[in-house]
Amino acid sequence: MVRRERKRTGRPRGVVAATAFFCALFLVPHLLDDAWVAVLTLVLFFAFVGQAWNLMMGHVGLLSLGHALFLGIGGYTTAVLLQDYGMTPWIGIPAGALVAAMVGAGIAWLGFRFSVRGVYFALLTIAFAEFFRILFSNWPLIGGTGGYFLRVVPEDNVPLLSLRGGADHFYYLFFVLFLVGLIVSARLVRGRIGMFWSAIREDEDAARALGVRSFRLKVLVVAVSAAMTACGGGAFALMNGSLFPNTLMGMQMSIQIILAPIIGGLGTLFGPFVGAVFVVLVLEFSRDLGQTAGVYGLSTLIYGLTVLGVILYMPEGIWPRLVRLAQPLRRDR
């Protein structure tokens, strides 16, 4: 489903649009109130993490249904290093990314070594995620199901140093992560490695026959995806101040992670963002509706029906559909 958006003729237009978009995002905290900032922070979080997941799925075709595992690894590593060892998140987050990369590489290595494919691979990711979630839930060191709590920031907190601050601060933290994530993804996907990944996705056997080292490249994409996700997890932990294994590492979270890129548009660069906007907005909207109507469960129902609608009528995703609508005069599909 990858469409290399070779906007030859539209390039100046594309660049202008993208710059305008990022400027708009940058200015949000100055233009909108705290409630909106909080919502958009969440959007950027899911967009960033969704983009990380998208690397594995959209570009190499590996379905991970247990991605929340890496969120948890990143979150707990960052939090524990900060709280129990006094290490700044500037070290903690990369550390979390490293651990996640190793765990991800390990799982990938096992999976590929034993030729676990298709739906079995997806189930393998679920199994590992659940296994570790239960492990973390029963690990006294990190508080188990009771949760792990970060101490409140001291009076003389310097947000840039401690990476903890107010709503605006976290907005920019996730904005930077999202931007960096996009740039890194774009570089990888449009470079040589991305080309090999596409080849593997299209026909792994043919690629290997041509000398592409598919095993290594597949382990690589999982490691990169895991590391990115873990960074998101670390930032998420700092923002929330508390971690619970069942929410942070559970199936629900894994599902939420993948909803955004699938609904937004797999394999595209902007799909995860559009999907994240959709997912977060629908969630907020349905929650509000449920609360005003006073009916428990209405929000879940509406959420489910909306997702159902999108997946039925916009199978490639919202972003590709929008692109097509906006450019009816384009020659190719």
Binding site: L63, L65, I258, L259, I263, G297, L301, G304, V307, L308
Partner: peptide
């Protein structure tokens, strides 16, 4: 359809059914 699409379909079913149960 591809597997991830099917997965989301059934997740949507699960959400709708759970929503109805809760309601």
């Amino acid at each position: 359809r591809p597997q991830h699409s099917q997965f989301i379909l059934f997740i949507a079913f699960a959400l709708v059914i759970t929503g109805l149960h809760l309601m």
